[in-house]
């Protein structure tokens, strides 16, 4: 089982790797590229901590193999943090206490980014449904939902 050479775009920059086919995208990002913002919470696609954008779509990086991202464009929380509109995201989450331990937060932010890109003027129910694939054990979701409401209202 040899290793495969891959080339992809991560947070706007080219990234190369030599990976076993079984290496998950999450491990490739975290261990090989040292982009440790992406977190693993269940490695089963349920908790959402590992959510990244793959060609603009929110996906579970624990359920993708790095070899599958060949030629693709991946955005992680580090990329989001470097983006222009991150300040608004950061402010909304901080003002509304949308995080406590912060472990699920990168995944929540990636989902939020995807939600802001796809839904215009969502209702609270729609927001809650969109966030339901990101488990948070600390906040009871209240602050997360409030932060996203604030962001969607600002966007509308």
């Amino acid at each position: 089982m040899g290793k495969a050479a891959i080339t992809l775009t991560v947070n706007g920059a080219e990234a190369d790797g030599l990976v076993e086919p079984r290496r998950t995208l999450a491990d490739f990002l975290r261990e090989d590229l040292a982009l440790t913002g992406t977190k693993l919470g269940c490695e089963q696609g349920v908790c959402g901590a590992c959510t990244v954008l793959l060609d603009g779509q929110a996906v579970r990086s624990c359920l993708l193999f790095a070899v599958q991202a060949q030629g693709a464009s991946v955005t992680t929380v580090e990329g989001l943090a470097a983006s222009e509109d991150f300040d608004a995201l950061q402010k909304a989450f901080s003002d509304n206490h949308g995080l406590q331990c912060g472990y699920c937060t990168p995944g929540v932010l990636m989902t939020t980014r995807a939600l802001l890109d796809t839904l215009s003027s969502p209702s609270e129910n729609e927001i809650r449904e969109a966030l339901s694939g990101n488990i948070c054990r600390c906040t009871g979701y209240h602050g997360i939902v409030e932060a996203v409401k604030e962001l969607t209202a600002a966007q509308a």
Binding site: P21, Q44, G45, L63, L64, F65, Q68
Partner: peptide, 23 residues
């Protein structure tokens, strides 16, 4: 899509020798 197969592989409940990726 791998959304059912890969969780099983991560748990080692499935261990295919060869994956043919249709993506």
């Amino acid at each position: 899509g791998g959304q059912s197969l890969v969780p099983l592989m991560n748990l080692r409940l499935a261990a295919p020798e060869h994956l043919v990726d249709l993506n």
